[in-house]
Computed example of a mutant assay.
Amino acid sequence: MEFDLIHRYFKTPFGGLAQANPDTVLFGIGDDCATLRLAPDFHLFTSTDTLVEGVHFFSDDPPRVTGWKALASNLSDLAASGASPLGFTLNLSLPEIDENWLAGFSAGLLDIATRFNCPLVGGDTTSAGSNPLKTLSITVFGQAPASHLGFNRAHAKIGEEVWLSGTPGLARLGLLLEYQRRGRLEQLCKGHELPQVQALLAAMPAKLRQIAVSQLGMPVPRIELGLQLRGLASACLDLSDGLSGDLAHISGASEVSAILFQSSLESMWRKLWPEIDQQANAAGLLKVLLVQTLTGGDDFELCWTAHPNRHDAIQSLKVGLHCVGVIEPGSGIWLQSQGASRERVSSCSFNHFAEIQN
C-alpha cells in the first residue's frame, strides 16, 4: 500500500520535473538515497520544516493549499539565504489513507515545485498510528556560488537600512478572517483587542480580504528577490513568526538595535489599501494593522539590512519593497513615531507550545 501511494501520488506525477533536471538530480525517488550534483564551485544550502494539522493548517483547508504552503515555507528559507532550489524530500505521517486528500495535496505540491523548478527527490510515508493528526515534514536543498555564503543574521551593521518585501501582517489578517468565518475570533483576540479587530475586518474591502486569505494559504516565496539581493544585503531572514520577533533575531545576533519607522509601516499599508484614510477611524485601523505587522506570522516575506548606498539599487529591483527602519547602536526593536518618540517593541513571535489548536 505504501509503495503504491508513493508511485501514484508522488513518483509518477513528479517524475517529469526530476527528468527535466538531469544535471542536478542524478537519482531520485526509488533508491535508498537521492543523488544530487552541485554546480562547480557552488555551496549546498538546506533547510527543514514540519507542519502539523491543527497547528499550522486547518483540518478542513483544501489539500491543494496545504501542499503549496508546505513547500513554500521551506523555499522561503532558501530565498532568505540567496540560494536557488535543487530539490526536496517529503515525509508524511497520516492517520488514515484519504486518497482525495492525497490527490489534492500532491497537486498543490506539484504546482509550486514546478513553478520554482524544485524536484521531489525522496521521502517517506508512514502511519500516524493512534495520532489523529497529519504531520508533514519537508527538507529542501539549494545552491549558491561559493563566493556567496548566505545572509548571516550577525552581519547587520550600524547605519544600515531595514527593508521589507510585500506587506507583512497580511497573513495574520487572513488568519483572523478564517477564525471569524468559523465563529472563533475571540480565541485569537483577547479583551479590548477583539472589538478593534472586528472593526478592522468589517472595514476591509473585499479585494484586501481575498489577498489576505491567499497570503495565508498560498504565500509566494521570494526566490528571485533573494538571488537579486546577493551583494546588496548584509543580514536577511524570512518572516515566518512576525516582524518584531524575527527582526529581533538579527538584532540579537548582530548586537545592535533596529529602529522601525511607524510612518513607513503605515505607508506600506496605505499602498495596499489607499482608501483607508477615508474611514472615520483611519488612525485606529492603522494602529491595528501595525500590530498585525509586528506580531503576525506566516507571511514568508523577506526582511533584510543593507548599506544606504545600496538604497537605489534595491529600490529598482521591483515594486513592493519598503525601507522601514535603520540599524543603530544598542539592543532590541524600537518603534519611532512621527513625533520622534520611541517605544520599545516586545519581540513577540509564534510560540509552538502556547498557540491554540485550530
Rank of each mutant, 00 (worst) to 15 (best):
E178A: 13
P195S: 03
Q215K: 15
L188Y: 12
R209K: 15
E186V: 05
L170P: 02
Q187N: 10
A171N: 10
R182K: 15
E193A: 14
L177D: 03
K207N: 12
L185Y: 05
Q187T: 11
L216P: 00
P219D: 07
L201Y: 09
Q228L: 04
E186Y: 07
A171K: 08
G217V: 00
L201Q: 09
R209F: 07
L173R: 05
I223H: 10
P205Q: 08
Q215R: 15
C189L: 04
P221R: 02
E193S: 13
G226N: 03
K190H: 14
H192N: 04
L216Y: 08
V197I: 12
R182L: 15
L173C: 08
L225T: 13
R222I: 01
A171D: 08
L170W: 00
L173W: 06
K190P: 00
L176S: 11
P205S: 11
P195M: 04
E224T: 11
G226E: 03
G217M: 00
L208P: 04
E193L: 15
H192M: 06
M204Q: 01
P219H: 03
I223V: 15
L170M: 10
G174H: 02
E224C: 00
L227P: 05
L173P: 11
I211N: 05
P219R: 00
E186I: 01
L170Q: 03
L200T: 11
A202N: 10
L200H: 10
Q215C: 14
A171T: 05
I223Y: 06
Q198H: 08
R182V: 02
G217T: 00
M218Q: 13
L227H: 12
P221I: 03
G191E: 13
E193N: 11
G183V: 05
P221A: 01
Q210A: 14
V213C: 08
E186P: 01
E224Y: 05
R182H: 14
L173Q: 06
Q215P: 09
L225W: 04
L200I: 07
L208T: 09
R209V: 13
A171M: 08
L200S: 07
M218D: 11
G183M: 02
G183I: 04
Q180I: 06
C189K: 06
V197E: 03
E178R: 12
P205D: 12
L201F: 12
P219S: 06
A199N: 14
L194P: 01
Q196D: 02
E193D: 14
P221D: 06
A212H: 00
E224H: 07
E178F: 01
L188V: 12
E178C: 02
G191L: 07
Q180M: 08
C189M: 10
G174Q: 09
G191N: 15
L170T: 09
P221E: 03
M218R: 14
P195R: 01
L175H: 04
Q198F: 04
L177W: 06
E193I: 10
G174T: 05
R222H: 07
R181A: 15
A212Y: 00
P195K: 01
L188C: 12
E193T: 09
Q187C: 11
L188F: 11
L225S: 07
L175V: 07
L194W: 03
G183Q: 06
Y179C: 12
G226C: 03
L216G: 04
H192V: 05
M204F: 03
R181F: 08
L173N: 06
K207F: 09
V197W: 02
